[in-house]
Structure formats: C-alpha cells, structure tokens
Design a protein around this nucleic acid. Structure first.
Length: 638
RNA sequence: GCCGAUGUAGCUCAGCCGGUAGAGCAACUGAUUCGUAAUCAGUAGGUCGACAGUUCGAGUCUGUCCAUCGGCUCCA
C-alpha cells in the first residue's frame, strides 16, 4: 500500500496510508484537538476534516477559536438556518448565505414576509438540527449533474450561480446534512452537533446579487459563537453600543435635532451642537492655512449651464435640486468644485503659481433617497471641508502624499482608526481610459509611498475620477466614508483650465478634489459615537459648570464665572436652589468634563474644586490654576 | 427608490375582545439653603404621525400618505 508523508502542525513528519481522511490523521496525532477543530488546511488549502490526503503535504488545523474557524462555524450555522427554513416553510427558495463580520446571513425567496415569530420558529428547528448532530457530507459533482439536481428542486438561484461559473470550472461541490443539500465551496464543520451558540437577529430585504434591477429576496441575519457566553457578551456589547448612538446622544446632550416639520435629512444645530461644530471648523481653518491652502467661498446656486458643462447635469442630476430665478434655471450645488474652477480661470496662471489650493467649508445639497437617510451620518444638506488643488502632473504625487499625511494627522488628533480603500472607475463615468489609468496609478503610488494598507473597491469611483476613501466606524461598527482624495483630469479639460509652463506654452493642470473630515455633519456623528458624548476638553461645548452649594455662594460664583469666561473657558452656571448631588448628577449626565463646586471652603480660599466625569476630585485649586489646566488640555488636544 | 418593522405627553413606555388617555422621569409653582450621581409637596401637559374609510362609537379595524428604525441599492 502506498503511503504519504504528512508534515503535522508541530513540524514533525509522519507516514500515513494514501487516502487517509484528515480527521484520522489528527486523531492519531492529537485526539483531543478534534473537539475544537472545525476544518484543516492541506498545503494551506482549507479543507473539510472528511477530505482525504492523496499526496505528501503539510497539514495545519483550523481551530474554532480562530478568526477563520469562527467564519467556518458561522457559515455552517447559516446552512443550518437555510435547512431549518426549508423544513419550516413550503415553497422557499434558497440563494446565498455567507459569514460576515459579526455573524452570517442567508437570502431566501418566499411569498410571505418572515416575521419575528417566524425567527423563533426557525431557531427552534435549528436547535433540533443541531441536536440531531447530522454529519455534513461533501460531494463533488459535475456542473450538469448539479444543475439537473437543483432544477428538480426548483432552486433557480442555485442554477443561475452554477451557470455563471467560468467555463473551465467543470465540477462543483455540494454539502448536505440530514436531507438538506446546498451548493457551496466549503469547508464546513464535520457535523451539526458542533454548533453551540447562535441567535437570529433580523429580517431585511436584499436584492438578488445586490442589483436593484433584480428581485428582492428576504435576508435573515444571525450570529453565532463558539460558546453561549461569547454570544451573551456580543449581545451585551451591541446593547451598550446603542447607548452611544449619536441620534440618542444628540437629543440627550441637546446638540441638534432633525425635525419632520423642517424636513427629513436637514439638521438643526442647537447651541451646544453649533459650538462643537464651530470648534471643529476653527481647527480646520487653522490647519488648512498652515498647509498652504487659501480660503475661498462660492455661491449656493449656479446657472444650470455650468452644471451641463461640468457633466453634473448628465451624471448627477437625480441627486441635485434646481430652482428658477428670473426665467433662468439654477442648480443648487451638490459639490463645491465649480466656483473653484472659476477662481482658477479668473487670471492667467503660470507654472510658478502652482499648486493652487482652494479651501472652502462648502455647504452642499444632495437629494438622497428616502431610505438612506440616517441621523447626522446621511443627510441632504451638509458642509464639506472641501478643497480643490490645481497642480502640474509632476506635482500630483507630492500633493496626494501631503493630503494623506494631513488625513492621518487629523485622525490622530480626533483619536480615530480608519480603513483605506482605493475606488476605481464606475460604469457611469466620463473621461478617457488613459486619464483614468494615470489617475488611478497616481493614487496607488501615493498609498504605496505612504505604506498605507488599503483595499481596492472596484467600480466605486466618482464619475469624474478614481479616489482614495478613508472610512470611520460608528458605534455599531458600520463604516462611513469621511476623508477622500479624488483625482480629476476631466474637469480641467471641460473648463479649459491652463497654465503657462516654463516653455512658454499652455498646459493643462491636474485637479484633486479632497476632504479631510468629509462632511462636518457626518464627522460629528461618528465623533459623538466615538467619544460616547464625553468629548475631550478641547472639543466639549461646555467645558465646565459652576455649582453653588447654597445661595450664599452665588456672588463668589458670579465672580469666578466672569474670570473663566473672560479667559475663554466655556463655562456655565448652575446656581439653582438644588442640592449639590442633584447638580452633580445632571452635570454627569451631560458629560461635562469639569464640575466646579463652589461652597464655603472655596469662597474662603478664593478657589474652585473641580470634579471630573470619572468621579475623581482634584481638591480645591485656584481659579488661575484651573484656567491654565484647561488651556493646557486644549493646546494638547485632550 | 425597494423589503420589513415602528409611530401614544419634552423623554422612556403602558393602554385587553373597538366604549372616549395613563405611569416614571423632565417641565412649572411652592417649601427646603443642603458638600460630590436624584429633597418633599403640588400643578400643568396629548388633533394618540397625517388624511380618508368601516362603525352608534376608532389610539385600537381597513386604505393611502408622511416620518423614523433595521437592511438592500446608492453615497460625504
């Protein structure tokens, strides 16, 4: 009998009979490992434990506790869910069901809508399937055989998936468990009994293959974990995260409102929210001036001819608002670039003038579809920290690098981690292939020079050029695009921008569109969730509240108030006739960084006693010391 | 825009089989002058998202619309 040499996870190599199942190899090496092993890798290729080893190979295990193991477990749970749904509802068609970041989903076609009660019913059936401990069996079949099988079962989505596989793929794999068969690449757990902890979370509509021209299927989301405790912990964290929701905090901290009366997607900033926004905007102006930007301002509406020329009318019209003034159609700006183009064109430019960096805190309007509005994170009117840089092709890389550097500085100041994505040419776009290639290459190079880790987002660029996106996460771990750098060869062309080069000839400048924080509204939304409303001192709309112990401390309190206020500290007074504990509680809930207690002791020593949000007490210190403390923290962005 | 759920006082939420609206907190008034997360008492507050319809009678049932929430698509 022929043998194979298998290198085990511990590095030793042993001979086994050819065709031995992976499971038996592991059993003979380290039996106890099987309990937590969901799958294995043969020469780094993930395989089921039931697969056989046919040639000399290196074997490694995929433990259920590893990220990969958890994904396999969740994927298998999604199959169990599909199994349960098919058992419980006649006429259901299955489609796809992958594992995702925090769990899994499976999309079904079914004539009626699944209800929350249905989810419980499905869970109950899932528990039966788990208890039955069905082995998960892998089978390799020809495409034709798979197609006829799924045709017979009326699983049209599966048939479509197989038909769309590349020509050279001849076989597909089927996984079955207790009568349920699914088309799947695998690998899967060896048997359903390995599943311990799962929960179905929600039902949502989802287009087949993510295309809105297709039929809408019903997607059931769920999650699964190795142990019940992990599941409970996850659900607890989600509950906690909901308390950080900026829509909830926005109301509780009296930052802003979005009112039905005024209209959906339109933010009304209250005094404290406006203060927060102003602090951010002041920081923006300072940082941009430091980096060689010039501040500009454009009008809110521009004649529709301008938008025709730019391509917005053809490619962005459904997102724009229009208005008529004296028989002239005007477009309300959805982007700030046009006015900046006119500023460039206002005189002849020399290569010596470049790069020109025009910065505008520009308010734009976009008609977003009703279903996508989301608190501050997705609105119809917002203000971008927008800039357009016009430069020579030679300056392009340096400019992109400088912007990437600016973004990473800003993210550090505000304490954010972020994901970077490079978005390439979309279907609906303008410009030549060469320009797109050049622009994409320039962005890519800047990313590589900066050693930034990034993903490629195929077809997700703007209609006029490719872009680098920087994404931040909200409390529920959803990604939101904030900073972006977009390369544009088209608008300079359309507006016939030029500069005189060293050779005395006219040349075409290149344009970069870029935002650092993105939309101030969206940035504030993620910022609120990031800090759970407890802003650092430099950002806090109210940095400190004076709290009198009794009415007789008010005159001294007023003196302190004037001194702090004159010194630029954002201070409020709580001199109400309430007990100190009551005022502290309120200050605490408002997440004020410093509560200053004013009582007999403070009046006597001309001092204040700061209490911090975390309950710490700084003891009595002089008003001047407190002022320098706040100033220092602001200077340090703390 | 699409799928599903939801919409009752400023906020969080009760309200049964259709019989005419309720709590806690907040607010307001008064008393209390108090030292680090809620002093006590009283008062006021609602076109039950909007508009139609069914009914003797609608917060409750039906329809349409609006908005919100979770997704999909789209996007800063």
């Amino acid at each position: 009998m022929s043998e194979v040499l298998i290198t085990l996870p511990d590095g030793t190599a042993r001979s086994f009979p050819r065709g031995i199942p992976v499971k038996e190899v592991i059993a003979s090496w380290k039996k106890e490992a099987l309990a937590s092993t969901v799958a294995a890798k043969i020469d780094n290729e993930p395989v089921d434990l039931s697969r056989t080893v046919e040639k000399d190979a290196a074997l490694s295990l995929i433990d259920v506790e590893s990220r990969e193991g958890l994904e396999i477990l969740r994927h298998s749970i999604s199959h169990v869910m599909a199994h349960a749904v098919q058992d419980s509802f006649a006429g259901v068609r299955v489609s796809i069901g992958p594992s995702i970041e925090d769990g899994f989903y499976y999309d079904f076609e079914y004539a009626e809508a699944f209800t929350p009660d249905d989810l419980e019913k499905i869970e109950a059936r899932m528990r039966e399937i788990v208890a039955a401990d069905y082995p998960v069996v892998r089978r390799e079949v020809s495409k034709e055989e798979a197609i006829s099988l799924f045709r017979e079962m009326d699983e049209i989505y599966k048939v479509e998936l197989i038909n769309d596989l590349p020509e050279d793929v001849r076989t597909v794999t089927l996984y079955s468990q207790g009568g349920f068969v699914d088309l799947c690449r695998g690998p899967h757990i060896p048997s359903t009994g390995m599943i311990r902890a799962f929960k179905l979370l929600s039902v949502a509509g989802a287009y087949w293959r993510g295309d809105e021209r297709n039929k809408m299927l019903q997607r059931i989301y769920g999650t699964g974990f190795v142990k019940e405790e992990d599941l409970a912990e996850y659900l607890r964290v989600v509950e906690e995260a909901k308390k950080r929701d900026h829509r909830k905090l926005g109301r509780e901290l009296d930052l802003f409102q979005i009112s039905d009366e005024a209209g959906p997607g339109l933010v009304i900033f209250h005094p404290r929210g406006t203060m927060l926004r102003t602090i951010i905007e002041d920081w923006e102006r300072k940082e941009h001036l430091k980096r060689g930007y010039e501040m500009v301002m454009g009008p809110q509406i521009l004649k529709v001819d301008m938008w025709r020329k730019s391509g917005h009318f053809d490619h962005y019209r459904e997102n724009m608002y229009f208005t008529e003034v004296e028989n002239q159609m005007y477009g309300i700006k959805p982007m700030n670039c046009l006015a900046h183009m006119l500023i460039y064109k206002s005189r002849i430019r020399s290569y010596r003038d470049l790069p020109l960096r025009f910065f505008e805190l520009g308010t734009v309007h976009r008609h977003e579809k009703t279903g996508v509005l989301h608190g501050l994170l997705r609105v119809r009117q917002f203000t971008q920290d927008d800039a357009h840089i016009l430069c020579t092709p030679e300056q392009l890389n340096g400019e992109i690098t400088a912007i990437a550097d600016f973004v990473s500085y800003a993210m550090k100041i505000f304490g954010f981690e972020y994901d970077v994505e490079l978005s390439t040419r979309p279907e609906k776009s303008i410009g030549s292939d060469e320009d797109w290639e050049m622009a994409t290459a320039a962005l890519k190079e800047a990313l590589e020079v900066n050693r930034m880790v990034y993903e490629i987002n195929e077809g997700d660029g703007a209609f006029y050029g490719p872009k680098i996106d920087f994404k931040l996460r909200d409390a529920l771990n959803r990604k939101w695009q904030c900073a972006t750098i977009q390369c544009d060869f088209t608008l300079p062309e359309r507006f016939d921008l030029s500069y005189i080069g060293a050779d005395g000839e006219k040349h075409r400048p290149v344009m970069l569109h870029r935002v650092i924080l993105g939309a101030i509204e969206r940035f504030m939304g993620v910022l609120i969730e990031h800090y759970a409303g407890a802003f650092p001192v430099w950002l806090s709309p109210v940095q400190t509240v004076l709290m009198s112990v009794t009415d007789r401390h008010i005159p001294y309190g007023e003196k302190v108030y004037t001194r702090l206020s004159d010194a630029g500290v954002r201070v409020e007074r709580d001199f109400r006739n309430e007990k100190l504990g009551y005022k502290i509680r309120e200050g605490q809930m408002q997440k004020i960084p410093y509560m200053l207690v004013i009582g007999d002791r403070e009046v006597e020593g001309e001092k204040v006693s700061p209490r911090l949000r975390d309950g710490r007490n700084l003891g009595a210190i002089s008003v001047d010391d407190f002022i320098s403390l706040v100033r220092q923290e602001c200077a340090d962005y703390k």
